[in-house]
Design a protein around this nucleic acid. Structure first.
Length: 554
RNA sequence: GGUCCCAUCGUCUAGCGGUUAGGACGCCGGCCUCUCACGUCGGUAACGCGGGUUCAAUUCCCGCUGGGAUCGCCA
């Protein structure tokens, strides 16, 4: 299959564009075909500087680089590579013009000198008459204009457009087998659509027919907002003598709009749910940048999209946790015909799975890339301590065990406490949330004993056995089950004791396995951090001072 | 309004005439457990409505309702 993504340079990368690109690219790769990028910049009025960078860079970030078409060269500038260059439509103006001339010669197209004002007037009249709008039938005043009047208009230098001459007999229907929607039948086109605009640049429709034919596109896979143009497009291919490609119209990603309306008469508020396409203007999640900023790794966004495209993906992923998503066989006919609602909660879940499958190095690289933009302080620490960071990230990883990082913003709470800088800031603020079961006065004793008994060389089980022993010695149940059976018999349990250590050491109540955390921190850092808690809580400078009141230091 | 598309738990969906309507996310509860997380077990929750066809409809047909797309010298 030869597929393409043909965006117009709007300066905005819509998530739907990534979705369609993904489908096009996967299908081309799976069939050992080609995927190319063509720039549909025929709307000169809307040209936006830098728009091409937005598209190309986003596609590259999401691993959707085209095989041919508009690419970035080795020096970073844009190049057009492939047998059918150029791939930028404004650079192909002469090609379209030749085909337009050919159509005129065969009586299938004609010049129209209507001004936009005239066209507007026609539309107003049609609307008033409840007639079908558009340039067709008796409204198409230049359709059968005499040669003399055309020459006269030309002579006056009036601007004109080239229009298709729709069939004289507007009855009948056209039918095609859509790759995702199935067989569809529509009335034939009877509107004399514009082929070339007054600036000589083609409309999307004309450029589509010419380019997809010349560039040997076998499958046009695009958003389903194009479906209603199909009668026109198919007609164009026939007029031009081209064999039409296969078409597949994919549904848009939607969003739920909850409208609350107050009934004027009854005063009741009723809510109506309606779905609508993700809007570039109103929905931040329509922009791919949103996902990066939210800290979803690119692979997570892609897998989420794949999930929307083929629901079988989820089961496949479960069965093949370590394979790249590119091994998944995407099937066009398995796309649902209706549009899916963007589900950010589900996206988080997919993201969590993707990050969990990464090794420490990948977490480091991807996380750092995010942090550099959205958490510079953390990023700086990650770069200052690369090996230490990697070791911290390596805890319970890989193996999809550590799912604490759902998206990159979780990096700070999950990794931050390893850095002395952040830990010290926390300590200065005094925000240590120690377990309530342990009186403040008892903390130094317990921590001192835990520190004395800690042996970095011993294993995890041995270490927790020590913690149990210390717990037992001080009236805390070393065995959770015993405590559960008779809570009143103990001051607390081993969980409280290890939590005391965890909070003192990390400043947070939630961390992975303490033994591993301590191993990464190293004995010196452990000593330093605990040292501040080894004296009586409320009288730091004077160790001999009387015990503080319970809770005074928290 | 014309044309076209769509319709199963809140969400993504499986289903392709006979199923206790399955899975995933979310939510709730149990278990596991040094915390969190993971894991695990269980629970919650759906075939829009009305006609047909058929021995039998979630499934096929028609209508309705609801939602969407489109009707430009924009793509």
């Amino acid at each position: 299959m030869v597929t393409r993504y043909a965006p117009s340079p709007t300066g905005f990368m819509h998530i739907g564009g990534i979705f369609v690109s993904l489908i096009n690219k996967r299908l081309a790769v799976q069939s050992k075909g080609a995927f190319y990028l063509r720039l549909e910049d025929t709307d000169v009025k809307r040209a936006i500087p830098g728009a091409l960078d937005t598209i190309v860079d986003a596609m590259a970030r999401y691993g959707l680089d085209p095989d041919e078409g508009v690419l970035r060269g080795p020096d970073g500038s844009f190049i057009q590579q492939g047998p059918y260059a150029p791939y930028v439509q404004t650079e192909r103006a002469a090609i379209y013009r030749d085909y337009a001339i050919e159509l005129i010669r065969r009586g299938l197209a004609y010049p129209c000198f209507c001004t936009v004002e005239e066209l507007d007037a026609i539309r107003v009249e049609q609307t008033a008459l409840k007639a079908k709008t558009g340039y067709h039938g008796r409204w198409a005043k230049w359709r059968d204009a005499s040669l003399a009047s055309v020459e006269e208009a030309l002579g006056r230098g009036l601007p004109f457009v080239m229009r298709l001459r729709a069939p004289d007999d507007p009855s009948g229907r056209i039918e095609w087998k859509d790759g995702v929607k199935g067989t569809i039948s529509m009335p034939v086109n009877d509107v004399d659509h514009v082929l070339l605009k007054s600036d000589g640049i083609p409309t999307y429709h004309f450029a589509h027919a010419v380019d997809d034919h010349l560039m040997r596109t076998t499958h046009v896979i695009r958003g389903d907002e194009w479906m209603s143009s199909m009668p026109f497009h198919l007609q164009l291919f026939r007029y031009l003598g081209f064999k039409p490609p296969s078409y597949a119209h994919v549904p848009p990603i939607q969003k739920l709009d909850r409208v609350e309306e107050k009934d004027a008469e009854t005063g009741e508020t009723k809510t109506t749910d309606s779905r609508r396409k993700l809007s570039k203007r109103h929905d931040p999640e329509a922009n791919v940048d949103y996902y990066f900023e939210a800290g979803v790794p690119e692979a997570g966004t892609i897998e989420y999209l794949l999930n929307i495209a083929n629901s079988a993906f989820e089961d496949w992923r479960r069965g093949s946790p370590q394979k790249p998503y590119t091994d998944f066989p995407l099937k066009l006919n398995k796309l649902a015909a209706g549009g899916a609602l963007s589900d950010l909660v589900k996206l988080s879940n997919v993201s969590q799975g993707v990050i969990a499958r990464m090794n420490a190095e990948e977490v480091y690289g991807n996380g750092l890339r995010w942090a550099k933009r959205f958490d510079p302080e953390l990023a700086a620490l990650m770069e200052q301590h690369p090996d230490y960071t990697r070791r911290a990230l390596h805890i319970e990883r890989p193996g999809a065990k550590n799912k604490r990082i759902v998206t990159w913003p979780d990096l700070r709470p999950q990794l931050g406490y390893f850095y002395d800088e952040l830990y010290d800031a926390l300590a200065t603020a005094g925000n240590f949330d120690f377990p309530e079961a342990i009186p403040a006065a008892e903390r130094p004793v317990l921590l001192q004993q835990l520190l004395d008994t800690y042996d970095p060389a011993a294993g995890k089980d041995a270490w927790f056995d020590r913690i149990r022993e210390v717990s037992n010695q001080h009236g805390y149940a070393g065995d959770m089950k015993l405590h559960k059976a008779n809570p009143a018999a103990y001051k607390g349990h081993v969980g409280d004791v290890s939590q005391l250590l965890r909070v003192a050491l990390c400043g947070t109540k939630n961390t992975p396995d303490l033994h591993e955390v301590m191993a990464v921190m190293g004995i010196d850092r452990v000593r330093t951090r605990l040292s501040r808690f080894l004296t009586a809580p409320s009288a730091p400078p004077a160790p001999s001072a009387p015990p503080a009141q319970p809770g005074a230091a928290t």
